[in-house]
Design a protein around this nucleic acid. Structure first.
Length: 135
DNA sequence: GCCAACGTTGGC
DNA sequence: GCCAACGTTGGC
């Protein structure tokens, strides 16, 4: 099973909102690299929910409940989306500062490519981040 | 609010 | 197919 990380600006779509909705379409991705990551997601894969711009922390874990399919909001037809559902909150949100302070996470795509909104998380990094988050 | 990183667009 | 100009993202 693969692991991932997706970003959301909390004033646009927050973790609270995600939990209230129960399930949502992860639409609006307009970047090929991010889109390729969405394509590689499989049913049941887990994914960190990260607050960008404000908060700057991993605050929750979601699960992929529907694999990649066309995004109706994309007129060009080039991009797709997945559906996700909240799985659990992270008891102690893992801040970007904490991630950057951890040498073992220096190669995490989140750190190396700050603009990529959907990125893979290697298994060992996933385990470490869960531990840092109190899970 | 600024700036760096980076993706996209369009002229040649 | 290259590259300059421009727009967007996201951290600080």
């Amino acid at each position: 099973m693969a692991h991932w990380l997706m970003k959301s600006e909390p004033f646009k779509y927050s973790w609270d909102q995600m939990q209230a909705d129960g399930r949502t379409h992860w639409d609006g991705v307009r970047n090929y690299q991010a889109s390729n990551n969405l394509k590689a997601m499989r049913l049941g894969d887990e994914c960190f929910f990260y607050h960008s711009n404000e908060g700057l922390a991993i605050v929750g874990i979601v699960e992929i409940v529907k694999e990649y399919y066309p995004d109706p909001s994309d007129a060009s037809g080039r991009f797709g989306m997945v559906d996700v559902a909240p799985r659990r909150s992270v008891p102690h949100p893992v801040t970007l500062a904490a991630i950057k302070a951890e040498p073992a996470l220096a190669d995490l795509p989140l750190v190396r490519q700050s603009r990529l909104s959907v990125s893979p998380v290697p298994d060992d990094a996933w385990a470490l981040l869960c531990k840092m988050g109190g899970l």
